[in-house]
Design a protein around this nucleic acid. Sequence first.
DNA 1: ACCTGAACACCGTTCAAGT
DNA 2: ACCTGAACACCGTTCAAGT
Lengths: 226, 226
Amino acid sequence: VVAASSTPSETRRTPLSRERVLRVAVDVADGGGIDALSMRRLGQELGVDPMALYRHVRNKDDLLDGIVDAIVGEISAEPPAPDWKPALRRQILQARAVMLGHPWAPRVLEERPLTGPAVLAYIDAILGILQAGGFPIDLAHHTLHLFGSRILGFNQDLFDDSASSRLDAAESAAFAASIAGTLPNVARLAIAVGHDGGLGGCDDDVEFVFGLDLIFDGLERLRAAG
Amino acid sequence: VVAASSTPSETRRTPLSRERVLRVAVDVADGGGIDALSMRRLGQELGVDPMALYRHVRNKDDLLDGIVDAIVGEISAEPPAPDWKPALRRQILQARAVMLGHPWAPRVLEERPLTGPAVLAYIDAILGILQAGGFPIDLAHHTLHLFGSRILGFNQDLFDDSASSRLDAAESAAFAASIAGTLPNVARLAIAVGHDGGLGGCDDDVEFVFGLDLIFDGLERLRAAG
DNA sequence: ACCTGAACACCGTTCAAGT
DNA sequence: ACCTGAACACCGTTCAAGT
């Protein structure tokens, strides 16, 4: 169920527009995940024939590109500052806050080409922060590639250890023992992650900021070296 | 069209097995992209009723998990060595070579939970390299999160500059001029990327290794500091 | 000229009927 | 007991018919 901002009768009265189509599409994805966002379902949510959407959106791909750009447009811009590290850090964490509100967004962002106006404006803002901090243009270019998805506030975690971190010490030990023969290093990791206080509970935000700061330090060293 | 390893009659004679289903599924994805991989198409490729696949695969998700694990299984293991940097570097570049042979794989790897035996064995190998190099277990854990998809040899590039790098200097200048008003920093970047020899042609491999080495250096500093 | 909705060519999966 | 294929509940999109 999607939390609609208007009653069905209002919905039907308001004329369709690309903006409204995209806004409701984001609502549908927020409410039911990206798989819930079909042209038919979206038409139903807007109280119109699904075919009516094609007047405001070229096709499904165009719809996805549109909501991706809308999401990036939610990120408020951080003004450039002479001290680039805190400025870029704030900017990226602002993007992260937006992404946390749309859990489906990272996946879609990754599989769509990012060429919308809001995305370009965001990249321009990032480059502005780097330039104000004294980055030559080629280092700024490397930096964009280096950050990858991190520039938008998320990092693709390939292995999910949230399950193992939910285990207590005894359960971790049992799991570790069961795989110790074939996967000795993963077993050791499972025990360490399970230890109370050992790794601080595997907070994703902690991991994200850890990675950010390590990369920042490496970049600052390159920048200072010229 | 998929390059089949056997003729239709052979295909029909050979009994189905999970391994064969997964192998042909990878072939279909290699040949036509991940969207070409449907249960119906896969059944057709194997010369069997689509429903017959459900004896060897729980459902479509299980099929995807299976081919993801099969791809990771293609990566040959690098033996641990006292010098962790070159060992890890070789291991990751080996993974990258495998991914370049299956362009659809990174996207699928990102959206599936990675819990198959080959994935776990691969992570165990990575942890083995780090441990042999003197990484304490908690730093090794941070390292996995830090690398993210890079551990499997690919980096999610959010903006695609392959189009702009294909332009010649005059075209870059014209494009830059057209956006200079609204996107001054992106415009400057476009000119720099377009310059012959300025950035070395935007080689993806160059960018990947650049990022790898920067992260390696940061980790080595943390490791040495204890 | 505009919009609607029937229809097409697909999906993944269930389930009853047949061997 | 096993397998098949019809059928269900969906897709995105085309296109002809209706207003």
